[in-house]
Amino acid sequence: TDSLIKISDQKTALALLEAGKIYYENFSDRKRAVETLETISRRFPGNETEPEALYNIYKIYRDDNNNQMAEVYRQRLIEKYPDNEFTKSITDPDYYAKRSVVAKEAERLYAEAYNAYTTGNFSLARSLCETGMEKYPKHELTPKFVLLKSYCTARLSDEKAFRDELSGLVKQWPGTPEAARAAELIAFLDQEIPELKIEEYKEAAREIYTDDKASPHIFALIIMDPLFNINQATFDIISYNIDKYTNRNFRTSGTLVDDKYIMITVSGFKDLGEALEYFSALSVEREIRNQTGAKMIRFLIGTKNMEALEKDKNPERYNVFFLENYPEAAVKK
């Protein structure tokens, strides 16, 4: 899938970057270092590692007193990544000194906001966090400001507003400790107040999915356990179809999606009416052997919305859309 290719490319680019730095710093092999680092630009143009690769090539030529080639890579870095910190470090002699001042100012502001929060002045703490987010939008302390602001929201507003801010943090700052903490809090809220998650899914689903009832529909069974026996589940559906729909040539297939969940699909319905009849007749508990008690979701989905689901990769969110937009479907287990 595209996502797996991106992950593989990123790992390769990072490995090339580290290898190039090792060739130069540990073995003083300038030629191999430059060749390895240049591979990033050639194979993965625009990758987040490219600015650092170009910077290191510039530095290698500069240290070797090859000013002509150093200038070539200096210009490439400036032209392609004018706002990158590696670019700023070679265009502004005072860049790191300025960055140190900014860091101290951000730390002081965060300490002030945290102190206001711990002493119960949540309005002031929230205001200081908003100031920090505005003044330092890309600073390493920014996700801390965002998380602290969400804590203030929890004190000043309701659970929905709290969850909304946590969700924003997870989306905007993935991979940070603050995003991980936000995800934990979201999971807790969803367990304690499940309607919050449903409401968020409804809002998001309206942006992702459309009224697709005119297109051919597919029945989908989602098994939220990637380790579930996919062959057994597919066989159970095929056996059900042979037993109940002898004269129909339904097509059944099973797919593991991103190692997160299994999707069993049935297609070949004459129209939405037949798909609805199939949906209402199939009892998942009766027909699917589920010894592990895996969570299962089932719905009908049009071909256009299936394309959207393949990008969104969140069947629970689509299911909320389905339940809201297909009232004619008798929701049975």
Rank of each mutant, 00 (worst) to 15 (best):
D243W: 14
R32A: 05
G20Q: 04
A103D: 10
D2G: 08
A53W: 02
I208E: 06
L148A: 02
A97S: 02
I60C: 13
V170Y: 00
Q10G: 07
E324K: 05
T118P: 12
Y245C: 04
K332P: 10
F269Y: 09
R43Y: 15
F122D: 14
T131W: 12
I264G: 09
Y261P: 05
Q10W: 03
K21M: 13
Y209E: 10
P143K: 01
L16Q: 05
K213I: 03
S8W: 15
L128S: 08
D190Y: 01
I208K: 08
T131M: 10
S3I: 08
N56P: 05
S3M: 07
L256E: 13
G273W: 00
N115T: 14
F228P: 06
F322Y: 15
Y24P: 00
V34G: 14
I22L: 12
I78W: 01
N66H: 09
E50K: 01
E107V: 14
T39G: 12
E203R: 11
N249A: 07
F122Q: 04
I90D: 08
L276R: 00
Y96E: 15
P174M: 00
L128R: 06
R286I: 02
Y117V: 09
I264D: 15
S123D: 14
E35A: 13
T87Q: 10
E18L: 08
A179C: 07
K270E: 10
L323D: 05
I297G: 04
Y110H: 14
A204S: 07
T210H: 05
V320E: 10
G46Y: 01
I78V: 04
Y58I: 15
G273Y: 03
E71H: 12
T131V: 08
M296F: 13
L169Q: 05
D92R: 02
R43E: 10
F219Q: 09
Q232P: 06
D83M: 11
L282S: 15
E285H: 12
D212F: 03
Y326D: 00
K311A: 13
